[in-house]
Design a protein around this nucleic acid. Structure first.
Lengths: 126, 126
DNA sequence: TTGCCTTGCTAAGTATATCAAGCGCGCTAA
DNA sequence: TTAGCGCGCTTGATATACTTAGCAAGGCAA
């Protein structure tokens, strides 16, 4: 691993290494985690996750792992490259293409503002 | 074989119908949405989503649709059967009451106002 | 009519997540 | 030594998300 960058450049890699470090930190085996998730995540699959062979596990898997390992759900979501609504680094591909459609490419802040505004106009009308 | 049930018990079904109602409410075609997502979600795929043929789209797809359609990310996540950290184990029945919070059921006037507001905050920020 | 365009939709293929089974290694005990 | 067990890991198979190409129906113009 001589070419590791300081930041987590590769998201998949980062997720795998994160999962592994957390598991080892808890002194659990792969099968321990499998059982802790109620067999929702097989040890074989977890192994592939940790080695980075699988880049985008489903949210269900991430949720099961987060509760079984005791780490916050959001941490796993972000490292898996998913976008959390509370605002975070976003995969750049979104910003690339712009079309001039009605509500297009809402940023997270914009979405929040829009929601606030909706609440405002609704309360006003009631 | 038209054996559709009238209730919205099935979450997958619910997601499809929700997407469709939002799209029609915005007066967009399937291809409009495809373009609005920057081609991230094809019109063919969206059609399958709306018809309930696909039950668990990835979070990326849901995110692209939420921004392009102007609905909150959480609403789609919940209807797709995913678990959001702020909620708890979510069942279909739960989703119904919980999503009153969202931009669900936008009236036409509200939609117009929202669009105006979006233009406003965008022009302000540039 | 004929021709062109758009709309929703489908059929068939590819990619990838996920599972079940099992392999080889290191350990510990007889 | 051999037997057994738990460990991480791999290998193949299946399910399902997702793509690309295209079709039938309807609208509209010449």
């Amino acid at each position: 691993m001589p070419d590791e960058k300081a930041d987590g450049a590769d998201p998949a890699d980062s997720l795998g290494r994160y999962l592994k470090s957390v598991r080892l930190g808890s002194k659990m085996t792969l099968r321990d985690v499998e059982n802790a998730t109620g067999r929702e995540v097989s040890n074989a699959y977890l192994s592939q996750l940790e080695s980075g062979k699988i880049s985008k596990p489903s949210v269900h898997v991430l949720y099961a792992l987060s509760t079984s390992l005791g780490v916050p759900y959001e941490a796993l979501m972000e490292r898996a490259g998913y976008i959390m609504p509370t605002g975070d680094p976003i995969e750049a591909s979104n910003a690339a293409k712009k079309t001039t459609y009605s509500i297009d490419n809402l940023t997270v802040e914009e979405e929040k503002e829009m929601l606030d505004y909706l609440n405002y106009i609704r309360s006003k009308k009631r």
